[in-house]
Amino acid sequence: MLFAVLCKDKPDHIHVRMETRPRHLEWVDGLNEKGTLKIAGPFLDGDDKPCGSMLIIEADSQADAEAIAAEDPYGKAGLFEKVEVKAYKWLYNNPEA
């Protein structure tokens, strides 16, 4: 089952994002290698600066998806103001369909 992980950065925390980025990318690379990751990237503000993140991941359950999301180094570093994990159905342009 697919899940969307929607993360909103805390205001004025770009420094946390930049300091933590190498660990975050290593974590995302690991998800990708395992086949867990389907899509990932940052949200951008009006100045084209990152202000959040979105990942589409595959997990067996909501609890498993939440556990995966909780391992994000950005979250552990206190970057996020809010994280939502929602079941997701990929209808259009799904390469696996």
Rank of each mutant, 00 (worst) to 15 (best):
N93F: 11
E71S: 12
A67G: 09
P95C: 06
Q62G: 08
P95A: 09
P50N: 03
W90F: 04
A70C: 12
K82G: 07
V83C: 07
A63I: 03
A40W: 01
M54W: 00
A65R: 09
T36L: 06
Q62M: 14
I68C: 03
E66A: 07
I56R: 11
G35L: 07
T36Q: 07
D45R: 02
G46Q: 09
L55W: 09
E71D: 13
V83R: 08
L79W: 07
K86R: 13
A59Q: 01
A87H: 14
E81K: 10
E84C: 15
S61K: 03
Q62S: 11
P73A: 01
D48F: 10
N94I: 14
M54D: 00
D72A: 05
T36R: 06
G75W: 10
L37M: 06
V85Q: 01
A70L: 13
F43W: 01
Y88Q: 04
F43D: 01
K86N: 11
M54H: 00
A69C: 09
P50R: 05
Y74T: 10
V83H: 07
D64A: 07
I39N: 10
F43V: 00
W90A: 00
D45P: 00
K86C: 09
A59W: 03
L37V: 03
D47I: 00
Y92V: 15
Y74I: 13
K49D: 12
K49Q: 14
L55M: 11
K89C: 14
D48P: 04
L37C: 01
F80Q: 10
I39H: 12
E81Q: 13
A59G: 02
P42A: 04
Q62E: 13
C51S: 00
P50S: 02
E58L: 00
S61Q: 05
I56M: 13
N93W: 09
I68N: 03
K89T: 15
F80L: 13
S61I: 05
L79F: 11
K86T: 11
A69T: 06
G41R: 12
L91C: 12
E71R: 10
L55V: 07
A87N: 14
A87P: 13
A77Y: 04
D45K: 01
G35A: 07
P42V: 05
K49N: 14
I68Q: 04
M54Y: 01
Y92M: 15
F43L: 03
N94E: 15
K38V: 15
Y92N: 13
K76E: 06
P42N: 05
P50F: 06
K49L: 15
A77T: 08
L37P: 05
E84K: 15
S61N: 08
E84W: 14
G52I: 02
A70P: 09
I68S: 03
G41P: 06
